Amino acid sequence: MIFLFAPFGMPLIQFKPAGVLVCRGANMSRGDQLARQWQIIHAIASSRSGRTAAELADTLAVNLRTIYRDLEALQTAGFPLYTCRSNGKNYWSLLESVKGQIPIPFTFTELLALYFCSDLLTSLQDTVFFEALNSLFQKIRSTLPPESLQYLSTIQKTFTVGKKQYKTYGNLSTIITCATEAAMAHTTLQLVYYSMSRKQETERLVDPYHLWFYNGTFYMVGYCHTRGDIRIFALDRIKTIRPTQNTFVVPEDFDVDAMMQSGFGVAKGIPEHVQIFFDSSSAGYVQERVWHQTQKLFPQPDGSLVFEADIALTDELKMWVLSWGPSAKVLSPPQLVTALRNDVLKMAAQYTGISLPEEPSPTIPLS
């Protein structure tokens, strides 16, 4: 499991026999203790007859002394491990009382991992999903033995999930529920929707094809009868919603992933080949991530970088480029260069009070 590896040079954690945790530097071997101990628990829990120390050492490619040290650490931490002898060998297993508490189809380690992920639910707070998942996590908590919860608490002290900006959905539970039920039942919705770009409310008839949670926001993807096209609706901008008596069939060729691929976020459009130059101060950061499925990176001798991708020219793309400040420069296409130049001139005028002439609007407007 990824969360058990020390991210970004974070010190790794090791159990000592006394149950005390000590930090060690990032120069430890790749088989760091927490990750390996997790793999040991998983291997033992997934085996009906248990595992020998030799089998564990072979599976994890470490020596027997390391395995015995890890098993001792897990027992000290409170995991209900025991050994039984069969055919002249000692097999390590979990107590049957622990296995018996686990509802099918979840395994012991799957429940541990699932419960650990409860910290990821902040962005779903005040939604019916949060309430249901929170209830599930409470049930998982009651299923896990106290020793396992103590071990999870230890792990959680070494790893924190950063909280991004998110929207509050306390007053939107009815809208979310209605949209979800309509999408599942293939029922057309009648709604009043506020368009942020047009700053106005309009009545719409929408066939909800798909619900999408992206970057802290719930969206409904569906066919808008008013516009005669597939559109994306932010659920928090729906003012009123009600199901109609009409039903629909989702087109067989509808593919939400393919539909979103051209965009740089939520907005979609016709993709253009984009080239962006990043100087040496930002090139390393750009290389660390996959920003778009079609991206190609071309490192330059001076440490700079050219980013290329086929992306729809949306406001989201513009804001991403602007977020890099003067370290990024769009090379092509010309209409994106012009749009960004005009935005930068307007920003400069706000801070300097000096207005410079803008270039004519792009012949191909941004999506």
Results as ranks from 00 to 15, higher is better:
F278V: 04
R69F: 06
E358I: 11
K16V: 11
V192H: 08
Q200Y: 09
Y82V: 12
S86A: 15
G269L: 13
D207W: 01
L64M: 14
Y193F: 08
P146I: 01
L366E: 02
F298K: 12
R231K: 11
E359K: 06
T226D: 03
Q335H: 14
S281I: 02
E147Q: 13
H186L: 10
K163M: 13
I232C: 05
Y351G: 05
F213E: 09
S367Q: 13
R198W: 10
A182L: 10
L313V: 02
T240G: 07
T107Y: 11
T158S: 15
S29L: 12
K157A: 14
P17R: 10
L356D: 05
S153K: 11
S148E: 00
T122S: 09
Q275G: 01
Y194I: 06
F277R: 00
K163F: 08
V290I: 15
V249R: 14
L112T: 04
Y82N: 08
G228Y: 05
T143V: 15
A45D: 07
L21W: 05
Q101K: 15
E316R: 05
G19D: 08
I175T: 15
F233T: 02
F254D: 05
Q138G: 12
D253F: 10
S47C: 09
T352C: 07
K157C: 12
R231Q: 09
L366C: 08
L12F: 11
Q125W: 05
V274M: 01
Q150F: 06
A73H: 04
I354T: 15
G216Y: 10
C178Y: 05
S47N: 11
I44L: 12
L205Q: 13
V344I: 15
V98T: 12
Q75F: 07
T314I: 03
I13R: 14
F108Y: 13
T66W: 06
P146T: 06
V306F: 07
M260N: 12
N90C: 13
S148L: 11
A183D: 05
D207Y: 01
V344E: 09
M319K: 08
Q14E: 15
G50C: 06
E359H: 12
R69Y: 06
L64G: 08
E72G: 04
V206T: 02
Q293L: 14
K164P: 13
L60N: 10
I175V: 15
K163Y: 03
G353H: 06
F254G: 05
P360Q: 08
T187Q: 11
F8E: 12
G284I: 05
Y209E: 02
V274G: 02
F5T: 10
T314Y: 04
F129I: 12
E203T: 15
